[in-house]
Simulated assay, not measured.
Amino acid sequence: MPTWTLHTEFKFDAAHFIDGYDGKCGRMHGHTYKVHISAKSHELNPSKYLKSADMVCDFKELKWAASDSKKGGFDHSVLNEEIPVATTAERIAEYIHKETVKRIPGNIELKVTVWETDTSWVEYTDQDV
């Protein structure tokens, strides 16, 4: 069976605090988050930018979170004001995944990896791996 897997990475700068955290992460601070998204499909699809079925999905749809906060992304935002969940790396990855799924065809398996620092990251997928 043919399989295509797209990979893209992007960064965004944002501030956050973890509400209720007993330690320095409970105070407002910032990170340059790095995000890697892989999108796997066994068929090609059209997109809102290309009507023929010649891509897994558009890279633009995978990179939405890198946009400025005034354009619907997270760059230069306070994450606590942008997302309705706790701002742990785990929940940020889950939120990016869920919002990205809404923007792409339903036959695509996504995996989202979010680095909070160079040495600390989390992977999220809704697939049983």
Rank of each mutant, 00 (worst) to 15 (best):
F12V: 04
E90D: 12
V101T: 11
I37W: 11
H31E: 08
K24V: 06
A89V: 14
E81P: 01
K71C: 10
V114D: 09
F74A: 06
G73Y: 05
R103G: 03
E61Y: 00
R27N: 12
M1D: 09
G106W: 02
K51F: 02
Y49A: 04
R91K: 14
E82D: 06
V112W: 09
T88G: 12
N107I: 03
F59Y: 15
A93K: 03
T125K: 06
S77M: 05
P84E: 13
E9P: 05
F17E: 10
V114M: 06
H36R: 13
D118R: 10
G26Y: 02
A15W: 03
K111T: 15
Q127A: 14
V85E: 11
V129N: 13
N107T: 02
H97E: 08
E99S: 09
G73K: 07
H76V: 02
H76F: 04
D118N: 15
D75N: 11
G20I: 01
P2G: 00
F17W: 06
D58Q: 00
T87E: 08
S69D: 09
K63L: 10
L62Q: 07
W115A: 09
K24H: 04
H42D: 12
P105I: 03
H97W: 15
K111L: 14
A53G: 01
M28I: 15
G23H: 01
F10Y: 15
L110W: 05
F74K: 05
T117M: 05
P46V: 03
G26I: 05
L62R: 10
A39D: 11
A66H: 04
E94R: 14
D22I: 01
K24A: 09
H31Y: 04
E43K: 13
T113I: 15
T3G: 00
D19Y: 10
F10D: 10
A15C: 12
G30L: 09
E94N: 07
S47I: 03
V101G: 00
Y21R: 03
M28H: 04
S77R: 11
T5V: 12
W121M: 15
K63G: 08
Q127I: 14
K24R: 06
S69A: 15
W4P: 00
E99K: 15
K63F: 02
K34V: 06
G106A: 06
Y21L: 01
D58L: 02
D13E: 13
E81V: 03
K111R: 14
V122W: 07
D68W: 07
C25L: 06
S38E: 14
N107W: 04
K11Q: 14
G73H: 06
E109P: 00
H42E: 11
C25Q: 04
K63N: 14
K51W: 03
D126L: 00
E109M: 10
